[in-house]
Simulated scan of single mutants.
Amino acid sequence: MESLKNKFSNENLSILAWKLAIGSTLSWELAKLLGSDHPYLAPLSVILTIQSTVDKTVSLSIKRIIGTMIGILVTVLIARHMTINGWSLGVLILLGCYVSIWLKLDKKVLHQVSLTILFVFFFEHQTKHYAIDRLRDTLIGILIAGILQLVWFRIILRKK
Results as ranks from 00 to 15, higher is better:
Asn12Phe: 10
Ser14Val: 06
Ser14Gln: 13
Leu16Ser: 10
Leu16Lys: 11
Leu16Gly: 06
Ala17Tyr: 09
Trp18His: 10
Leu20Ser: 10
Leu20Arg: 03
Leu20Asn: 07
Leu20His: 02
Ala21Trp: 07
Gly23Gln: 12
Gly23Asp: 09
Ser24Ile: 07
Ser24Gly: 15
Leu26Tyr: 00
Ser27Pro: 11
Glu29Ala: 06
Ala31Thr: 05
Lys32Asn: 04
Asp37Phe: 00
Tyr40Pro: 01
Tyr40Trp: 12
Tyr40Ile: 08
Leu41Ala: 07
Pro43Thr: 05
Ser45Ile: 09
Val46Leu: 02
Val46Met: 02
Val46Thr: 00
Ile47Thr: 08
Leu48Ile: 13
Thr49Leu: 02
Ile50Gly: 02
Gln51Asp: 08
Val54Met: 06
Val54Arg: 03
Asp55His: 04
Lys56Trp: 06
Lys56Gln: 15
Lys56Ile: 05
Ser59Lys: 13
Leu60Met: 04
Ser61Tyr: 03
Ser61Ile: 01
Arg64His: 06
Ile66Asn: 04
Thr68Asn: 09
Gly71Met: 08
Ile72Pro: 01
Ile72Phe: 06
Thr75Tyr: 08
Val76Trp: 04
Val76Glu: 07
Val76Asn: 02
Leu77Thr: 14
Ile78Asn: 01
Ala79Phe: 06
Ala79His: 11
Ala79Leu: 01
Arg80Cys: 07
Arg80Trp: 13
Arg80Pro: 12
His81Phe: 15
Thr83Gln: 12
Thr83Ser: 15
Asn85Arg: 11
Gly86Phe: 14
Trp87Thr: 15
Ser88Ile: 10
Ser88Gln: 09
Leu89Ser: 12
Leu89Gly: 11
Leu89Arg: 09
Gly90Arg: 03
Gly90Asn: 08
Leu92Asp: 05
Leu92Lys: 05
